[in-house]
Amino acid sequence: MKEINIFQKQFQAKDNDIIVASFPKSGTTWLKAIAFAIVNRQCFSSIHNHPLLSSNPHQLVPYIEFMYPANSHFPTTEPRLLGTHIPFPSLSKSIIDSNCKIIYICRNPFDTFISAWHFFNKVRQYCSSSALTIEEAFEMYCNGIIEFGPWWSHMLGYWKESIVRPNKILILKYEDIKENVNLYVKRVAEFLDFPFTQEEESNGVIESIIRLCSFEKMKDLEVNKSGIVYDGLENKHYFRKAEIGGWVNYFSPSMTEKLSKIMEEKLSGSGLSFKIMHS
């Protein structure tokens, strides 16, 4: 909270900043890698010496909220690529008022919960806290007691703003990208004003970015098997399964019913909906 407070007061956005925003465990690592590869494709045209092969995406696209107090270094090259899990209304005024671009990724709340439960238990382990059972974690999730606030208000904050300012915020769904990654890589590039040329498309540049940023490729890299990003949390914890529909292996019928009702109640009338797929 202290760091976020400092960020709100001190952070000065630039009009060409690019911010990758998300609720935790929604496909953030993947989108950060894709955005970095798109924006920097002229600097690193050779895939063999690409920064994504030797650095975790969270190092290349750092979280703004983890950069305060000011003992961390902001990216010096422009456009600056930054990440955040902060809800839209809590962003610094300079981000909201500037022309910087925000790409927001969300994921169906069933899979998000399972991924978050696994991940935050790793965090608790590091902090020497006992792991939460799935029942305890589910109760908290349903009540919105989770880092960065209730998932429904987080999604809706960015979603509603994207309707008002479609040139500023692009909403992406994890499941949609998985289904047609080529289409969405092109869409992200266009939104960020880094569209692919006809020549790049013919030369397979989009496909090489997709391969470079794929879950299988990133999970297999040495840097993502061993290194550490934040507060002792290991890089490997950011790469679990990247599945759609894996939640069915964990949910009881009553849990399924409860979360379905919450989704219906909270997202009703917003226009935001999710296909709940089974793996």
Rank of each mutant, 00 (worst) to 15 (best):
Q125D: 14
E3W: 00
E207M: 04
S90N: 14
W159H: 06
S129T: 03
T256W: 00
R107A: 09
V181T: 15
K225D: 05
V185R: 09
I262L: 15
R187Y: 01
F88K: 03
L172S: 03
F113G: 10
V223Y: 04
I146P: 00
V123M: 06
Q12D: 03
L183N: 11
I96G: 03
E139C: 05
P24H: 11
A13Q: 01
A37Q: 11
L272Y: 03
L183H: 14
V205Q: 11
I206Y: 03
H278W: 00
S128P: 00
I145A: 11
A131E: 06
V248E: 13
G27E: 09
I146H: 09
T77C: 07
N235D: 00
N121P: 09
S45D: 14
I134M: 03
T28S: 15
E78K: 10
P62L: 08
S273R: 01
W117P: 07
S129K: 14
F120H: 12
F251C: 09
D220N: 04
L31G: 01
T28M: 08
K2Y: 10
K93A: 09
T77N: 05
K25W: 01
I103G: 01
K173T: 06
T197L: 04
I102M: 05
V248Q: 13
G83N: 06
E199N: 12
I114D: 11
I177P: 05
M1I: 09
L82A: 09
F113L: 14
C213F: 09
H50L: 08
M1R: 10
V248L: 00
H118Y: 14
T77P: 01
Y158E: 10
D193C: 01
F119R: 08
G149D: 05
K168H: 05
S208I: 05
F119P: 08
F44D: 08
N249Y: 07
L81H: 03
D111G: 07
R211K: 15
L212H: 08
A137M: 08
K266H: 12
S202Y: 03
Y174S: 13
S254V: 04
E257Y: 06
R240F: 06
I209W: 08
L91C: 10
K9E: 15
T76Q: 07
A131W: 00
G204K: 10
F239M: 10
L132H: 11
E147L: 06
N40I: 10
E216C: 00
S98L: 09
N143H: 13
Q8N: 14
C100T: 12
S153E: 14
N16S: 03
R80I: 12
I262W: 04
P253S: 15
